[in-house]
Nucleic acid binder design. Sequence first.
DNA 1: CGTGCGTTTGAGTGACTTCAAATCGTGTGG
DNA 2: CCACACGATTTGAAGTCACTCAAACGCACG
Lengths: 228, 228
Amino acid sequence: MYSTLKSTTLFASAGDDDIAAIAPLASFRDYEEGSLLFCQDHAAETIFILVEGMVKLVSLRPDGSQITLRTVLSKEPFGALGAVRADAHYPATAEAMKRSKVIAIRSDEFRLLLLERPHLAQGLLGVITRYVREMQERFQEMVVAPVPRRIARALVRLAAQCATEAEGQKVVTLPFTRQDLAEIVGTTLYSVSRTIAEWERQGIVSTGRKRITVTNMELIKSLAQERD
Amino acid sequence: MYSTLKSTTLFASAGDDDIAAIAPLASFRDYEEGSLLFCQDHAAETIFILVEGMVKLVSLRPDGSQITLRTVLSKEPFGALGAVRADAHYPATAEAMKRSKVIAIRSDEFRLLLLERPHLAQGLLGVITRYVREMQERFQEMVVAPVPRRIARALVRLAAQCATEAEGQKVVTLPFTRQDLAEIVGTTLYSVSRTIAEWERQGIVSTGRKRITVTNMELIKSLAQERD
DNA sequence: CGTGCGTTTGAGTGACTTCAAATCGTGTGG
DNA sequence: CCACACGATTTGAAGTCACTCAAACGCACG
């Protein structure tokens, strides 16, 4: 548990004594594919760190459709906003996309530690700040970028996240359905299908059921850029 | 200066000793309408707190168009992400929309204080967390909501911010051009003009040059809702 | 009384969505 | 081991929302 905690982005700047203080609050949990780790608007009682698997944070809309706010792949924390304020509620629902293993930490006790241990607060600030920057970037994309560019950007971002796990190889396979991607970039599965089919004809990607393999990362990256 | 700092959202949870530690790092600055407080991608050397006036945080796009990430009205801090990491750069450009007065704090020295004074870190976490939630909400709007609803939401949000200053009155006047609003909701000034003109015909708002007055806040709020 | 910026309005276009239906691939039960 | 069933994907056709471009208008300031 010690070394697992130490290797996460949240506790990268923490000292051994900080880790020792956290460890008693933390426990491992496993989730089946499709199960929910927490639900939107429920009290944010625990914060999570993904150890293994894949989790998506989705926002359910009144009309039944859903938007994926974030895809958690590496050893990133999630549901961490609840550690800041005492009466916080989860702003989204967390769903396991595969069998996943997580570390769960009680947020109320963690919050108390934040006041005593500045390095923990530092780590949390770092994690949240990085998230803010990513959100701002995606926000801008949503507003101005056409659908194909949004998809390209999503692929680049997801490939980079996956590559953290499987050290930077040229060809990256992403285990997402067209529907998954549609919820990430805010479009329909039809538009995703048409766009990806076109790219497959051009040899930029190869696809399959629940799978998209980027074979020419450079080209995808250029499609993700502003200019044409 | 002491009481001014104490009244801001960033230092609401700070003790008198915290304020005393901050005060030497802080100074007042004034900006003319249209002047830039900081520029995108420059080193984030100082964090700001708006005391008086109005500031917008805009992201400039390669094609020349711009998107307003945030409109700062009340005694909110901005440019505060730079306080977290040493080598941070501003993710956006800050422009004064009116003559404005701000408090400027050197971010490198502030960062050191964060490690010694947990209540300051607490305050910063609170501010950033609130911002994350707002961004997530706007992010979702962008993806799924049609333009008129996005405009309605922007008006509701901006009116609420203004109302913090001029205690909740029924009729709120917002000093924005059609272009300003277009950059906030991510559309064109033409679409804003048409939408607002329609609302004026229905008596929901009254408009003028660089001015939009919400006369029926309830109706605007219902337009901002998901359902029709 | 001009000049310029902010605003209005029209017409045309294009990107994306929506709905419908067919097809493909995979896993499962007989 | 094969056939079926369901989920995932493809493709077509129609419709619409909002953008783009162009031009005119009008308020406010010098």
